[in-house]
């Protein structure tokens, strides 16, 4: 079973997207802040990371930077899932090594799950 690390501080989203991913046959590990996100990425070795950008303790961009710096996590694909939509944010995330950048408000739950599927299987 493929494992997804979902770094998101909003419990409502952890529930809606987290459970939908589980129903689609994935194992979902939740992190509610940036720091535990980085730690869990190292210990749980997920196949994919879903990362919010506005996070307590360690902001999303910093999380992404650390993930891409560490040998053990640098090859895990990271999908940024956020409501920030400024071009400079998108560019910064892509420069730091994100696989793709999704703006929550522009996607339905099903579309996000489809993106996850493509990233894991395609």
């Amino acid at each position: 079973m493929k494992r997804i690390l979902f770094i998101e501080d909003e419990s409502a989203l952890q529930k809606t997207l987290g459970e939908t991913l589980r129903e689609n046959g994935y194992e979902v590990v939740s992190a509610l802040d940036g720091e535990s996100g980085v730690k869990l990425a190292k210990t749980k070795k997920p196949n994919l990371i879903l990362l919010d950008l506005i996070l307590p303790k360690l902001p999303g961009f910093e999380v992404l930077k650390q993930l891409k710096k560490e040998e053990e996590t640098k090859d895990i694909p990271v999908i940024v899932l956020t409501n920030l939509e400024e071009v400079k944010d998108v560019e910064k995330a892509m420069e730091l090594g994100a696989t793709s950048y999704l703006v929550k408000a522009n996607y339905s739950l099903k579309e996000v799950v489809d993106k996850v599927k493509t990233a894991l299987e395609g």
Partner: peptide, 22 residues
């Protein structure tokens, strides 16, 4: 507007689950 977006996404996704019939 950015602050409004997050609760709005939560609502829309929760609604999507309810409407899916699952």
């Amino acid at each position: 507007s950015h602050q409004l977006r997050s609760p709005l996404s939560n609502m829309r996704w929760a609604l999507e689950i309810l409407m899916s019939g699952n």
